[in-house]
Write a protein that binds this DNA or RNA. Structure first.
Lengths: 208, 208
DNA sequence: CTCAAAATTTGACACTGTCAAGATTGTAGC
DNA sequence: GCTACAATCTTGACAGTGTCAAATTTTGAG
């Protein structure tokens, strides 16, 4: 049986990642410590060092997991609305925002580059590029449909992703004046933002 | 003489904030510790507690300082191009990006909501709102000039700020594929993004 | 000059990331 | 089966951290 490593714990590496994600959503970024992760996984405080060189590497793994979930959510939205480029754009963006709202600290640690640039974590780099390519495809389809203006799709992808990412962060970090927030629903606001960048007028009612 | 507090150190509170900002740009977010800040200011490890209730409060003060500098840079750009709404928009956005590039970790700690939402820090809240209002004015002026579409200026401000903020973070966090980065200058890319949201076509050459 | 308040130091505590040394376990080769 | 070896995990230690209580020093008001 070529099962996964079944030494003492079974599959400690993933258990640690999972424990980290749980602590993250329960206690926030400041509550995340290697020792607490180990405790929650039921191993001694130095056990993680058999699987991660240091804390950064655990964080990188947690980030990778976060990226994967974002990718799946966004990809799901794209698949669900095949042939409707506008709807694809709106729902993909909304999926992104929804993940951030569901698990703010996991989202933050994933996208806020807590990972040092010096070392590179191959799995993280891979899913990062895969995600960017997804956006590029999404954007290219929208361009073909005349919903976004012409231009280099990768540059356009930066614009669209930037818009959505910035919107998400401003909401998450409570940077938006509450007099604004009280008057609009989040998805309405997101659509309003997307509306600025598209060539067609979006009817918010069609998406809420 | 109603000079500032001239007890032992003189003006320790600001010295600590300054020391924190320096450590931040030298050693990054992970290198920032209360004790190191105290050491750099030449006081004992618990001295900061006379001026800050806890580390969060120091971070909040550093964030406030960061926000002030961003405000001044952006406000300066707005003043420098009075009567040229498009130029105002572009240069204000570029000022934002430039601060982030100059002092990435100060920018991150300022905008990445390291501050807990529970407690509120009045000075931070004030400069946050002041900054948002500046964007609203900037956007309203652009709308009057027909450069941005009509619509609630505060909503439009969220869109514009979101676009610029997202762009900045994606650059900062190295989230943009390098094959894209190599082909374009940053200001070019920023203008391309802004171009998507404006009603008029922007000539990048006019700004570089 | 006195004295209380403000500012700072000293010492302690629990917690953290990390490493070295040892103990335990599974696996491969015989 | 046995033996070696590598992977996995524990134990113990170290310096550094945030925070607090107590003692100390300094300041300015009366």
């Amino acid at each position: 049986m070529t099962r996964k490593n079944q030494y003492h714990h079974g599959d400690l590496k993933n258990a640690l990642i999972q424990a980290g994600i749980e602590i993250l959503s329960r206690e926030g970024v400041n509550g995340l410590s290697l020792r607490k992760v180990a405790r929650r996984a039921g191993v001694s405080h130095a056990a993680p060092y058999a699987h991660f060189a240091d804390k950064q590497e655990l964080v990188a793994a947690i980030s990778t997991e976060g990226y994967k979930e974002i990718y799946e959510r966004v990809y799901g939205a794209v698949q669900r609305h095949q042939g409707e480029p506008l709807r694809q754009l709106v729902e993909a963006a909304w999926a992104y925002v929804e993940f951030a709202l569901n698990d703010p600290d996991h989202f933050k640690i994933t996208l806020s580059g807590a990972v040092e640039k010096e070392k590179d974590y191959p799995a993280l780099v891979e899913i990062t590029q895969k995600s960017f390519n997804l956006v590029v495809e999404l954007v290219a389809a929208a361009q073909r449909a005349g919903i976004l203006r012409a231009g280099p799709p990768d540059l356009m992808a930066v614009s669209v992703w930037g818009l959505v990412h910035g919107f998400t962060l401003l909401i998450l970090e409570d940077q938006i004046s509450h007099t604004v927030l009280d008057r609009y629903k989040l998805k309405e606001m997101l659509i309003f933002s997307l509306d600025q960048i598209t060539t067609v007028d979006i009817d918010p009612q069609a998406f809420i």
